[in-house]
Structure formats: structure tokens, C-alpha cells
């Protein structure tokens, strides 16, 4: 399915084609429109949340080309041809992603407002570990990092860009550890 949405509002607008959750979407946005606003307001993908709109909380985390990005800190007009995944695109064949299931099992949320961002970050954390990326909590950066090294201190460090004011942190760590182990 493809569609053209977005309307001129007097200012200059830019056409941009992005692939969101596997579908090509044709956007027409103002140059100043953030990816977050484009997702929420133009494409109706409201799972991605706006909590600070200035890169401080992680609630707006999405994946661009497989990497986690704060969508409030990047412009929609820069995403031409990119593959974007949002929380709405994590399920496969109607089945929850392992991280989503682990968040339910370990009660990794209360109000749920930070949860989309937490889960998008968590999915990326596991991929980053698999790719051998160390973190500030890695004891021996000389040694190749593997997903088995994703200890609780590692998860805490890697998930600290995502604030949760309900403060579900220990449960989030348990959920990520569980999902990492199963991955």
C-alpha cells in the first residue's frame, strides 16, 4: 500500500518516500517536521511517544536501518529511502516479538507510556550485543563482546537512555535479560 498524506501549510514542503514497517509511505512534510511528528501526525503511528521532544528521555525511540534513533531528534525530510521500524512493526504474523512478550511476563511497565521506546531500545540492545558492541559498563573491551556477556549491569547501562518515571527498571532489566537469553 502506498499513499500520499501531509498537507502544505503555507511554508515550503518536501516530498519524501520512506519505508515504515515494511511499507513504502509517501510523505510531504515541512523541512522542520521531525520524524516523530511525521510518524505520529502524518502516518497516525501513535505508538511512538513524545515525552520531551528534545532527546532526553528515549520515549520516541525507533529503528532506522536497524539502529535505534531518537525520532524527535531527526528530521523526516532526511529519511528518504530509509527503512524505519516502529513499535507497530515488531510483531510478526500476529505474534509478539520475544522482547514484547518478556515485558508482559516480567511486568516491565506500569503506565506504559515509556514502553514503546523501552522495547525498541531493548531489541536494539540485544542486536548490538550480538554485533559485539561494548558499552561503558563493559569490563574488558579488548575481548569480543557476545550476547552472553549481557549481564544486568550491562543491560542497566545500555537501557539508561530510556527514562521510566513509573520506575520499572528492575523489571525492564529482567525482561531484557530473559529475551536476550532466548534470542
Amino acid at each position: 500500500m502506498s499513499e500520499t498524506r501531509g498537507a502544505a501549510s503555507g511554508g515550503k514542503v518536501v516530498p519524501v518516500d520512506v519505508t515504515v514497517n515494511g511499507e513504502v509511505r509517501k510523505l510531504v512534510v515541512e523541512p522542520r517536521t521531525t520524524l516523530l511528528d511525521a510518524l505520529r501526525e502524518e502516518l497516525g503511528l501513535t505508538g511512538t511517544k513524545k515525552a520531551c521532544d528534545r532527546g532526553e528521555c528515549g520515549a520516541c525511540t525507533v529503528h532506522i536501518e536497524g539502529r535505534r534513533i531518537l525520532s524527535c531528534m531527526t528530521l523526516a525530510a532526511m529519511q528518504g529511502g530509509k527503512q524505519i521500524t516502529t513499535i507497530e512493526g515488531l510483531e510478526h504474523d500476529g505474534r509478539l516479538h520475544a522482547v514484547q512478550a518478556a515485558f508482559i511476563e516480567h511486568d516491565g511497565f506500569q503506565c506504559g507510556f515509556c514502553t514503546s521506546g523501552q522495547i525498541m531500545s531493548a531489541v536494539a540492545v540485544i542486536e548490538e550485543a550480538k554485533a559485539g558492541w561494548p558499552s561503558a559498563a563493559t569490563v574488558d573491551v579488548g575481548k569480543a563482546f557476545t550476547v552472553a556477556d549481557l549481564s544486568k549491569p550491562e543491560i542497566r547501562e545500555r537501557m539508561s537512555g530510556n527514562l521510566c518515571r513509573c520506575s520499572c527498571y528492575p523489571n525492564i532489566v529482567a525482561a531484557v535479560a530473559d529475551a536476550a537469553e532466548r534470542s
Partner: peptide, 19 residues
Amino acid sequence: ISRTDGSLKVTGRARYTGD
């Protein structure tokens, strides 16, 4: 028991006021 609204919240389908 796990939260009954869990699947809505982990999929982004729970609709908050601003959504």
C-alpha cells in the same frame, strides 16, 4: 497475574490522550 492491558501497551496500541 500479568497485566490485562499488557498486549496493548507493548504493541503501541494503547491510546493515551495525545494519541
